Amino acid sequence: MDTPTPTYLTPEQDQRIRRWERWNRRYFIFAFITLIVLLVFSSQLGVSSGDEWGALGPLLAAFIAPIIVMQLRLSCPACGERIGWQAKLQAPDQCRHCQTFLRARQSH
C-alpha cells in the first residue's frame, strides 16, 4: 500500500498564510488591550455607568466582529476550502479537506 506523498504550499501560498497570521495576531493583541482598557475604565471614559452599558455593548461588538471575520475568511491556499475555526491565532498544520501541510517545504 503506497502512502501518499505529503503536499506542501508553494512559497507564495506560504507567504499568504503567514501574512494572515501576522494580521490576526496583531489585531488580536490590539483588540485585547483595547477591550481591557474599555472594560476597566468604561465608567471613567463615560462609555457606561454602573446601571447600564450605554455605548459599551456596541463598542465591544465592534472590536470582536473583526476577529470573527478574519477567522472565517481564512481558506486553504491549495484547495480554497475555508479553514474557519480550525485556526486559532495561527493556521493549523494541515488542511482537513485536502491534507496539504499549511507551510512551504523546507529545503535542507
Rank of each mutant, 00 (worst) to 15 (best):
P77I: 06
P11A: 11
L59M: 14
L89N: 08
A78T: 11
T7F: 12
S75R: 15
R26M: 05
L56R: 08
W23M: 12
R96S: 06
R16E: 06
F41C: 08
G50F: 11
L102Q: 09
R73I: 00
G80T: 03
Q86H: 11
A55Q: 13
R26S: 08
A78Q: 15
G80D: 05
R22A: 15
I68C: 06
Q90L: 10
R16A: 02
F28A: 12
L35I: 14
D14W: 15
G50A: 13
T34V: 10
L102C: 10
P4C: 07
E81D: 10
N24L: 04
T5R: 12
T10E: 06
Y8K: 05
L38N: 03
S48Q: 15
G54E: 00
I17H: 04
Q15E: 14
G46L: 10
A104C: 07
Q86V: 04
E12Y: 04
L38A: 12
R105P: 07
Q106D: 03
L9E: 05
M1D: 01
F41T: 04
H108V: 06
F101N: 13
A62R: 05
E52H: 13
R82Y: 13
E12G: 06
I33Q: 00
R18G: 07
W85Q: 04
Q15D: 09
D2T: 10
Y8D: 09
I17Y: 06
G84H: 07
L45S: 03
F101E: 09
T3G: 07
I83V: 14
V69N: 00
R96C: 01
F41Y: 11
I64F: 12
W23Y: 08
H108Q: 08
R103E: 15
R96L: 13
